[in-house]
Design a protein around this nucleic acid. Structure first.
Lengths: 157, 157
DNA sequence: TATCAACAGTTGACATGTCAATCGTTTTGT
DNA sequence: ACAAAACGATTGACATGTCAACTGTTGATA
């Protein structure tokens, strides 16, 4: 067996991606796009910076995925009236429907991945992930909750 | 907390990558290249197909990473005398030294990721990965052992 | 034996991530 | 009030993965 944890993580992630990709593609989405519309459907309209911060990815990546989502009619981009640097990303009707469909797909993938895990094991597995994650980004805030993002939004007022 | 396992996996993987990247870069390697020279240093010269099969990635990705490794002087590419379709990838002296240095880096990253995990927890975490992996690729062989790759090579004779 | 299918490798086009540079807007400091 | 700095978004260039098409070699079959 592969003894390196970094390879276990790498390979499990890639296996997941190979399962996730066709589910997203069936909805007209690329690999990275579902998480964006999922966030938008949970937390409502937000800026691109918020998306980049929440997922801890480069704003450039967000920008290009939104280009694709916009072209596909899943989101619209506007400009914040109070700060014209900032864009406001909104789900369209189609985007909302797709986000709902995606949630079902995500459920399916999760069920497949965790088949045979008891609830206690699932709990433990999740806890391991969180600990490993924290170890890997000791200085980064652990923003793994969509509600955190929404909270930040509210704070701005 | 993020309740979706697929996001836990995604985010932990990305956190790891952000730690791994600079370690590889310090050796002149891209993100995906260390695993290739690691495999070569463990299992000896092999074909590109073997690398693609072992890591379950597209042969095209292997081809381009080897382009970079070759340009960097880490590997050489030859042609199999018995089958001129097949290339033979060999580590150079520099490649071997770099592979050894990478193993230390990988050790460090692993230590960081698993800080605070008891040996039993590490064992369990690894087992969870393997189960999840198998659930995600029910039809794929679980080739997570470099020795498996070597075994396949031997079988060919 | 001559053809056809399978195979290894390469290349092109795309997606998603990185970093670095740029553009226009806002905020800050004097 | 103005100059400088910070900031959000965008774009270009690169790495690594996907798939699809192509090349050349090998092997199987009629």
């Amino acid at each position: 067996m592969e003894r390196r944890f970094y390879m276990l993580l790498y390979r499990t992630y890639h296996a997941q991606r190979s399962v996730v990709r066709p589910r997203g593609a069936a909805l007209g989405l690329g690999t990275g796009q579902p998480k964006l519309i999922d966030y938008l459907s949970r937390c409502g309209p937000c800026s691109q910076k918020q998306l980049a911060d929440y997922f801890e990815i480069d704003p450039a990546a967000v920008c290009r995925m939104l280009d694709a989502l916009e072209k596909g009619g899943f989101v619209t981009r506007g400009v914040d009236r109070n700060d014209r640097r900032t864009g406001t990303v909104c789900l369209t009707e189609k985007g909302s429907r797709t986000a709902a469909a995606w949630q079902q797909a995500a459920e399916d993938v999760e069920q497949q991945m965790l088949a045979g895990f008891t609830p206690e094991e699932q709990q433990q597995f999740a806890e391991f992930f969180r600990r490993a994650y924290r170890n890997l980004r000791p200085d980064g805030k652990f923003g793994m909750n969509p509600d955190d993002g929404a909270a930040e939004t509210r704070e701005k007022e």
